[in-house]
């Protein structure tokens, strides 16, 4: 990840005409968050499919498998975080980190990816083309979301940002970590997404939990 970030910094500081000091924290925290969210979605599609053997012979609570995906990705996240922390110390942006809002942002991201894992896990067990669709969507979303480009570069078609849930997911962690102000919509959007998402995922889970094992 350090190599990816260095390369992007080298390239994009020239393309966008911004300084390394401004751009590197942006792309570093952006990719940390994006990596976590995207791999949760991709692995989330495999939650129950990968657990076929266990689900078929024992009464293990199904949420265990959701937490398993989440925990595994949190470990990757913590691992990548070390590189970001090193960058923060070298470039000195650790001084401006807004710790309370960073934690709130992380909590909101977790609240959202967890329901997505559950929902994708169920739907993918039923429809086997979902994992491939998710994988290609993730690629598309990466380009449409300000992970390595700056939202300020967009003047027309602002809806690319306004209606992009991933923009808010990234903003929730990135802004407080690089000491920038949060988009005022981020917290309400993510909180309501978590609520609606969990209600949906839970409704689907209640309706299908008996069936999931037969999907496999």
């Amino acid at each position: 990840m350090a190599a990816l970030i260095s390369g992007l910094t080298l390239l994009n500081t020239q393309l966008f005409n911004v300084s390394v000091r401004d751009y590197l924290p942006w792309v570093a925290v952006g990719f940390l968050t994006w990596g976590f969210v995207s791999s949760c979605l991709i692995e989330g599609s495999d939650t129950f499919i990968a657990a076929t053997g266990m689900l078929r012979q024992a009464a293990i609570p199904m949420m265990v498998f959701v937490w398993r995906v989440l925990m595994r990705n949190l470990i990757y996240f913590a691992h990548n975080f070390v590189a970001i922390a090193a960058a923060a110390i070298l470039l000195g942006f650790w001084k401006t980190v807004n710790v309370p809002f960073t934690l709130i942002g992380l909590a909101l991201i977790l609240a959202n990816v967890s329901w997505a894992i559950l929902l994708l896990g169920i739907i993918s067990a039923r429809f086997r083309d979902i994992p491939q669709i998710v994988t290609s969507m993730v690629q598309f979303v990466l380009f449409m979301t300000p992970v390595f480009w700056l939202p300020g570069n967009i003047s027309r078609h602002r809806y690319i940002l306004d209606f992009n849930p991933f923009y808010y997911l990234l903003d929730a962690l990135r802004s407080p970590m690089i000491g920038a102000p949060l988009d005022h919509r981020t917290l309400p959007v993510l909180a309501s997404a978590a609520l609606i998402g969990w209600l949906t995922a839970f409704a689907v889970f209640t309706a299908t939990r008996r069936r999931i094992v037969h999907f496999l």
Binding site: G53, M54, L55, R56, Q57, A59, V213
Partner: peptide, 29 residues
């Protein structure tokens, strides 16, 4: 598998008291 709790029956009821160990697929997990 139903006795193990992996399949939930559509009709009827099942009560299992005690710790269940299923040796159905040894390579599980």
């Amino acid at each position: 598998r139903t006795l193990a709790g992996a399949y939930i029956p559509d009709e009827g009821n099942l009560t299992v008291q005690g710790r269940v160990a299923s040796l159905l697929d040894l390579s599980m997990g």
